[in-house]
Design a protein around this nucleic acid. Sequence first.
DNA 1: GTCATTTGGTCAATTTGTGTCCAAAAATAG
DNA 2: CTATTTTTGGACACAAATTGACCAAATGAC
Lengths: 106, 106
Amino acid sequence: MTVVEKFTTFGEHLRTLREFAGLTLREVATILRIDTSLLAKIERNERQPTRQHIKQFADFFKVEEKELVDEFLSDQIVYKILNEGTDLNILKVAEGKIKYIKTKNG
Amino acid sequence: MTVVEKFTTFGEHLRTLREFAGLTLREVATILRIDTSLLAKIERNERQPTRQHIKQFADFFKVEEKELVDEFLSDQIVYKILNEGTDLNILKVAEGKIKYIKTKNG
DNA sequence: GTCATTTGGTCAATTTGTGTCCAAAAATAG
DNA sequence: CTATTTTTGGACACAAATTGACCAAATGAC
């Protein structure tokens, strides 16, 4: 059970964290030494955060880095599925492949 | 139940189809009017097939286009998971998001 | 109205990916 | 073994996508 709403995007998640902390874009951007406009775009999912960014956000907002990373990466999977005109079945296929690879290697 | 082995990559799948048909890279490449080296690379997953390519392959080898598309797209998801150091949990997250979006929209 | 916040567009620069060409390596046949 | 065919791999010019910065316009708070 987390503070933030589930089933949102990375950007929305980030924005929620910031607003929950009662800070403006400029404030957070200044502290983290990134452009205000860039941060705004990351929150609107118009720019991708780098790994570095994600780590900074996790540290700053005191959340698990993996939580944010998964939020970000799952967004990309969602985007792919919705835009390539395929369906949820693809997740099963991917899961099968990964499990297969894992049994093969370790 | 298909002719080809399951849990393989798009490229391996394609290669299996070609070899099953008893054709060489050059033969298939010539017929489909693509560079032999490019076809070889696609089979080794060193180049991505375009949508056009996938359609050509499906038509030529008489398989469902969606089957190949899903094979290709799932590869990308697998690649992402294996290389970004995350785990299968991300698929659940993605699934949740998609279902959430679908209920929201229609 | 003023001031702070947020958004949106533009841009040069970098990064990433593409298909083609050619030569080397590997496999196959004679 | 040699000759031929198939496959692989590198190099390349080119195209496409993404990036972060900058600035101005829009929005919101007061």
